[in-house]
Amino acid sequence: MSRVGKNPVEVPGGVEVTIDGGTVSAKGKLGLLSMSFTDDVEITKDGNQVTVTPRSNVMRARKMWGTARAQIENLVQGVSEGFTKKLVINGVGYRAQVKGKDLVLALGYSHDVIYPIAEGLTVKCPDQTHIEISGANKQLVGQTAAEIRAFRPPEPYKGKGIKYEDEYILRKEGKKK
């Protein structure tokens, strides 16, 4: 019995969910998202709740039960509220700025790193050391944040680099004399 899958997904007001075979679409104030699911799970809508049940007791169906439910919840939350990831840049001379549809990062390399912003995402730089990535698609927001962080991951000695806002960097002690 899936602890995640057995709970129904609540659909808030202003969000419209349609189920067409194995495809679930959610439409809200932040846009339209849709996702296809396997035939191992059955997705039904009752009023303002979406429930997911496995079609059989096969291992794959039980695995996809909780996964499908979580992905449907991400669709509904994405079109109603959206998702945000915040990054912090630490280091002398390290900075970020948005120019048009590109994020320009100065990270101590001989050149600036230019990262193109994907369609459907909003990237803001409230100041030179903070980056806010927001959008309706949770996977796209997280993937973009991870790719930006990978340009200069935080190092353990001085803490220089790009890190998530809530990330804690384990610091190491330097060399002894």
Rank of each mutant, 00 (worst) to 15 (best):
Y109W: 01
Q128G: 05
A106T: 09
Y94M: 15
N57Y: 06
T51A: 13
I162T: 03
E132V: 11
I133E: 07
Q139G: 01
R62I: 03
L140Q: 07
G93F: 00
D102V: 00
A68E: 14
E119W: 04
N57F: 09
Q71F: 08
D40I: 00
G120R: 00
G47V: 12
V98E: 00
K175L: 14
R152V: 00
S56Q: 06
V104M: 02
T51L: 11
Y157T: 13
P126L: 05
N90V: 08
K101Q: 15
R62M: 15
W65I: 01
N57L: 01
K172F: 03
K86L: 11
T67L: 14
S80T: 11
I72E: 03
T129N: 04
P156H: 11
K101H: 12
A146E: 07
P154G: 09
L75N: 02
E167W: 13
K177L: 15
T44I: 15
K172I: 01
K85A: 03
T84H: 03
K177R: 08
K160H: 07
N90K: 15
K138L: 03
L170R: 14
I169C: 06
A118C: 01
P153G: 06
K172N: 05
G100K: 10
E165K: 10
S134T: 10
L170V: 13
L103N: 04
D112I: 10
R171M: 13
L121P: 01
Y164G: 14
R62S: 14
G82H: 09
T84W: 00
V41Y: 04
V123K: 00
E81V: 04
V79I: 04
Y157A: 13
G135K: 09
V41C: 08
L75A: 04
V50Y: 10
W65E: 05
M64K: 08
T122D: 10
P126G: 02
P153Y: 09
E167K: 06
K101T: 07
G108K: 09
K124C: 07
E173D: 13
I169M: 11
Q143A: 12
G174D: 07
L103S: 09
G174R: 02
V58E: 05
R60A: 14
I133S: 02
I162P: 15
N90G: 01
D112A: 11
K163S: 09
R55N: 04
A70T: 11
N137H: 05
R171E: 12
S110W: 12
A136S: 15
I169L: 14
K158I: 05
G82V: 00
Q71Y: 09
E81R: 08
C125T: 08
G78F: 04
T44G: 06
